[in-house]
Design a binder for these strands. Structure first.
Lengths: 148, 148
DNA sequence: GGTCAAGTGGTGAAAAGTGGGGAGCCGGGG
DNA sequence: CCCCGGCTCCCCACTTTTCACCACTTGACC
């Protein structure tokens, strides 16, 4: 279960150093094989390959004639890249994906249960405001009776 | 059942000394594993891990495509951090969370049944006024027939 | 006033982050 | 076909930070 956010920097070579507290669990879940892809909210997704495979298969099974379904297929599968951590626990983020998510030096790695999201600093700050902007609206489907 | 509020100070390293009267019960409920996360009202939540797990799972099950649901996931799960008390019963509050809840030196630890909330001094003072500001409005859903 | 528990601050060791250097590989040119 | 150049990726070593533990001070209760 991945949770928590960490502010990190991309180094000059576009490498992202995964914090040590996530490394072991990630390496274990991923068996060395990680998948990095794009998310419609303009962040990146970092999946252990075993968790990614069923999602990819489900997406690929959708109709290519439905424009929305095809769009999702193209975004998720078309941008997916196999990656691996180096011996120091760093992950190389391809320039295309860096550009997609508008990543500068400062980025956020955000645990989301089965996977991580990677945000630009600006994107993450903006994202934080989404909940505040909800105000007293009803909670979204599936969370109506969430009690904290 | 945690109840009561305590005014505490964060030390220079961002550590929060849990009052001894809460320690035993908290350590017992948490089995050493505590979770600290963000709440939309700009305070922090301190859960014993066993109480947190079902909430986290419920939140994670919500759709990532619905912006509101995704925002809640990112806020709650993305900010969650596993913590543990040190040998002196202190809890390290990560800088990201300190910033989120705008914690200065003076903070409040507030028992809320299954968990605690941690407020900045200013936030807690303001929070106290919310109920006064309700005036003669009807009681909120679920509390219509509350009698004191 | 004494004793004991709780709170507070400091210090050192170990691990994590950061940057660089070097070897290997691929592509291009002679 | 071989050689040279450039690029990529891997690994090592130094620096920095983190966190756990220890000792002292303070406060409360007997």
């Amino acid at each position: 279960m991945f949770q928590g956010a960490a502010a990190l920097s991309l180094d000059a070579k576009g490498r992202l150093a995964i914090p040590a507290r996530y490394r072991e669990a990630l390496a274990l879940a991923a068996d060395g094989k990680l998948v990095l892809t794009a998310h419609p909210h303009r962040c990146l997704l970092l999946y252990p390959e075993p968790a990614w495979a069923p999602i990819r298969d489900k997406v690929l099974a959708a109709s290519s004639f439905n424009p929305q379904a095809a769009g999702i297929k193209r975004l998720l599968v078309g941008n997916a890249r196999d990656e691996a951590m180096d011996s120091a626990g760093r992950l190389l983020v391809a320039p295309e994906l860096r550009q997609f998510a508008q990543l500068e030096k400062q980025v956020w790695l955000v645990g989301q249960g089965s996977h991580f999201e990677i945000w630009s600093d600006a994107g993450w700050q903006k994202q934080q405001d989404v909940v505040f902007a909800m105000g007293d609206q009803a909670l979204p489907p599936g969370l109506e009776d969430l009690a904290l």
